[in-house]
Structure formats: C-alpha cells, structure tokens
Amino acid sequence: MTTLELRNVNKHFGGLHVSRNISMGIEQGELTAIIGPNGAGKTTLFNQITGYIAPDNGNIFFDGLDITGKDPEILVKMGIVRAFQVASLFIDETVYDNLYLAALAYHGKNGNFFTNRRVYKDVAEHCHFILEKLGLSGKEKLKAFELSHGDQKVLDIAIALTMKPKLLLLDEPTAGMSPDERVKMTHMIRNIHEEFKLTTVFVEHDMDMVFGIADIIRVLVHGELIAEGNAEEIQKNPAVIDAYLGHEVL
C-alpha cells in the first residue's frame, strides 16, 4: 500500500526551479533515503510534504487522501511528522518538558487553561516511554540548551515520535555529529523504524548510513528525481555517479 505519493510536484523560488515535476510513491513500512548534492531541493521537498510550504502545482497524497497545501498542524494530526536539520526545540525548557508539551498536544490537552498541566498521568507515561526508547532517561531534567549537539538531534526526533507518526521525515539526522554519534543515530533510526512500524524518509549526506540502512534510495539533483532503487542499483547507476557520488566512492 502506498503511504505517500507525489504526482508531478513543482516548486519555484523566483527563477529557481527547486522541485522539477517530482513523482514518487513511498510504500508503507519503507525506509527511504533521499540523497543529492547541496541545493538539490531535498529540504524544500520535505517542506512541501509536511505542509510548511505548498507546491506551485502537482499533488501530494497520504494514505490516498489529497493533502496538497494543507497546514503542518493538520498533517501532524494525520500522522506526518518531521524532525529538522537544525534541531527545533523549546530551548529554555527541560528535556522532559519538551516532550511533555508535545504529549499534551498529542493528547489534545492544549486548550485547557485551568488545570495544572502536571496532573495528566497518561501524558507523563507517554513521555517516560519516549525518553526510555530514545535513551534520554537520566537527562530529562537538563535544559534543552544544555544538551550536546547530538542529544539535541535525538530530542528533536523524540518530539517527533511523541506525536505517534505514521510517516516520519528526518532531515539530515546525523548532520554535525561525531562518527560515534553517527553510528548510534544510524542504529536508532533503524530501531525506531521497525519498532514503531513507521514509514520513514530521511535526507542524508553520510553514504555509509544511507547504503547501510535504507530500503530504497532516491536521488535528487537540481530539483529532479534522477534515480530510485536499492543500494546496489543506486551505486551502479551512471547518472548518480556522475551527478553526486563521484567515481572514487566505488
């Protein structure tokens, strides 16, 4: 079953054609990597899928429903949730409160203006579950700004997971991380993908990670989808080698 389908999606920024007639179908349970050189339009594609910007034309379908141009908050409720290239956190709050706010939103408590926010046992349990799953237990009382860069990225993903996504989009999950952290993050993504039965799409420049865990790899160059396939197919694809991988990789 196709979870996410793009049909002829186009986006211009002024004279720049950042998404060129992109069509793709992402199957349920698939772990997809989107790769491509800087400026290929990967983040712009994410922004269109998650409703942050609308495509100029073309359509996006989620579980068969046309979601083109819908706002992020509606898409999040439908199950399309993202993490950001630069961790997007509530920086003055503790790790726990970052998740707690997300969980309050998930459980629909956000409009309640008279109850003490701490009373909700289900919300608290939800947070502890996520803390544990992502290895953030023990750090819950730290403020978000006190975390290492790597932990901030993990917290960003934790906030996304708190929303119980069906489709999870990760924008460069290992950007700026140390080699150790990259390995941990790679394992973590594979684990949460399987454990939460997600459909996952991630943008990444770390080819070890891409070829290591992705089921399907899709290559964007200058806003155009030039190839899709499994690791072996992509590594052998001459267009991809020319445009992005370079010959020395092989």
Partner: peptide, 28 residues
C-alpha cells in the same frame, strides 16, 4: 496563575520559544 501553569500556558511558552515547532506538534 492557573493559566500560567496549565497546558495552555505551556503552549504559549512554547510559542515564545519556537512557533514553528508548535505547528509541527500539531497546534495552530
């Protein structure tokens, strides 16, 4: 004061710190 420590108050503090993230946890 009740509002300040309510879930609604938390959302408002979240909007101050990061409005984009607020929309990406499903809130308007």
């Amino acid at each position: 004061w009740r509002l300040d420590r309510s879930p609604f108050g938390s959302v408002l503090k979240g909007i101050r710190q990061n409005p984009i993230r607020i929309s990406f946890i499903g809130l308007n």
